[in-house]
Each structure stands twice: as C-alpha cells, then as structure tokens.
C-alpha cells in the first residue's frame, strides 16, 4: 500500500503522546533510521479504550475506532501504532468491519452523519511487528542501526495482551511463549531474560485499573516478583498502558503494599532510541515515575 517508501499514518492514542511523549519522539526518530516514515494522522482521537468503551457498548467502540481508520483511508495509507490497546481497537475493528457486512453497515449508517464511510482499504500494524518483519525492516536492520549497544543489561520483555491475543484472530502464532520481541531486544545487545508466567497480564486492562486499583496492582505485583526473581535490570514492553501500570504502579504498590522494586520500565521504542544514541533527555525519561538511572548507568 505504501510502496517501497514504507510510509505510515502514525496513530498516537492517548497515553504515549499525553503521558510518555518520549515514546512518540522515539518512534518517529528510531523508525526513520530504519527507513520507515511516520506521518501524523490528523484529528485522530482515543482509539477508543477497548476495555472502557467495549464494556459499555461495542457498537460505539466499532464506530469510534472506525472513524480513526477512515482518517487513514482518506490519506490512502496504512496505520502504524505503538500501543497494544490501540492495536486492539484499530486493528480489530478494521478487521471485523472488513469481514462482517452487518456490523459494517451499522457503522456506516452512523459515520454517514459525519460524512464518512468505512471502505476497508487499509491495514493496521504495530510498529514492533514492522520492526520484526524482514520485508519492512527486520532484526538485522535493527541490529545494524545500533550505535550504543545495551551490552551487559538484562531485560525482561512484557508482551502484553491485546497485540497477540486472541491468537485465532491474530497472525502472531504462539501466545504461550513468544520470542520475537526478545529477539528484537537481543539485537540491541541486551540479554532478554526469561521469567515465570511471562504472558500474564499487567493488570491494567478491561477497566480494572479504574474499577479496583488494589486488585489491578496485585496482578502487577505478581509480575514484578517474577521479573525481579531473574535479576532483570529493566522491563520493556510495547504498550504505554502496560508501561503506566508498571511504572506508576510501582509507586502505588509501595504506598499500598509497602513493597519497593525500583525497576525501570521502558517502552521498546525508548530502548531502541537509547541503543541508537538518543539521550535520556531526548526521550524525556525524567517523566517516568521510576528512576531509570540504575539502568542508564550500565549503558552510558
């Protein structure tokens, strides 16, 4: 669709641009170094949050997500994004509406009120899968782009839920012990450590963080125990909402449970940015609730 130039409409979502802008800056700069150009998707909104909106009324979720897809259809460009929650909304609604005439007709009836129509002409990709795809970028190209290898660091990969699951509707294969993001992390020179119950949820999704924060944090705490056990220097993920749950969650866990981890949490794009020579300032790592210094000291 985007030809050899690998241009994509960059769907930002909410948490990346409005809480961790370093993720956005890193995505734009790191992708440019491997030949991917991200263009702004003007007027996009919240995806909308699949847990919150999907729980209230799936029809509204379809229509709201479809509006974002149509903005990219109007640019005649595939979408890429950097958040698993956004992936669930944008990828899944695009997929459902392409294959379900009844739902598509229902959505188009509503979109007509704002002079829009879902046509089903574009595809949606997570930037991490584009990085992994040898036809677009691939692990070797990522490795070649590294100027400051993360040698000597141990990194625990959190895949999150809504990128790869439910697997029968996705195209990522195994969801019990995936390794593809681990491969990307190792391409940066770090050691991707394996830990217990790697695919467990971070605890934030489905509106649970807002509904019952203690329940949510108890799930997060279990993950942190498992990550700490294998001596990881940092957690990396491909979802700013998981990032928020692990990062700010550690402060909340300290307050509510009295347990301190001090484990830095970095989006894969931030990690890639560091490995490509971006400074912590250029990534606004100071906005992270958990100080990234212990990790940075190992690589700078």
């Amino acid at each position: 669709m985007s030809g050899n130039k690998h241009q994509y409409a960059f769907f930002l979502g909410c948490i990346a641009p409005n809480r961790y802008p370093g993720c956005e800056a890193a995505a734009i700069r790191t992708s440019a170094k491997v030949g991917i150009e991200l263009l702004p998707l003007k007027g996009a909104s919240c995806c909308p949050a699949p847990g919150a909106f999907g729980s209230i009324d799936l029809n509204v979720w379809y229509a709201m997500a479809a509006r974002n897809v149509v903005l990219a259809e109007q640019m005649n460009m595939d979408i890429t994004l950097i958040c698993n929650g956004c992936y669930k909304s944008i990828w899944e609604v695009n997929h459902i509406l392409k294959h379900n005439d009844e739902l598509r007709d229902g959505v188009n009836e509503v979109l007509k009120e704002i002079d829009m129509e879902f046509k089903g002409t574009i595809d949606v990709w997570h930037l991490a899968e584009l990085y992994y795809d040898p036809a677009i970028c691939g692990v070797d190209k990522i490795r070649a782009s590294v100027t400051r290898p993360l040698t000597g660091t141990k990194i625990a990969v959190h895949y999150g839920c809504h990128l790869m699951k439910p697997k029968k509707e996705r195209h990522f294969g195994d969801t019990e012990n995936p390794m593809w993001v681990d491969e990307l992390v190792e391409a940066l020179g770090a050691e991707a450590v394996q830990y217990r119950n790697k695919m467990q949820c971070c605890g934030a999704g489905g509106g649970v963080r807002g509904f019952d924060i203690v329940h949510s944090l108890d799930i997060t705490n279990e993950k942190l125990i498992n990550v700490k056990e294998v001596g990881a220097d940092a957690i990396t993920e491909v979802c700013p909402f998981c990032q928020l749950e692990y990062d700010r969650g550690q402060i909340e866990i300290a307050e509510k449970f009295g347990i301190k981890y001090g484990l830095p949490v970095l989006h894969f794009n931030e990690l890639l940015g560091l490995a490509q020579g971006m400074s912590p300032q250029e990534l606004a790592l100071d906005l992270h609730a958990i100080d990234c210094k212990p990790f940075l000291e190992k690589i700078l």
Partner: peptide, 29 residues
C-alpha cells in the same frame, strides 16, 4: 477526544522533545 488528555507538565515536556505542545490529534485539531 482523548480518554487520557494532555496537561501542562506534558506540554512542556513535549516542547523540550521538539514535538508540538499538543499532539496532531483532536488536541491540535
């Protein structure tokens, strides 16, 4: 348009990063 909207601390950080103070979403449009 956002479930988690922008705020002033974040606007300042975005500016430091060379990003527009408001992202090119419903915030800027």
């Amino acid at each position: 348009g956002h479930g988690v909207p922008n705020n002033d601390v974040n606007r300042a950080a975005r500016e430091r990063l060379g990003l527009p103070r408001d992202p090119p979403t419903t915030h800027a449009y």
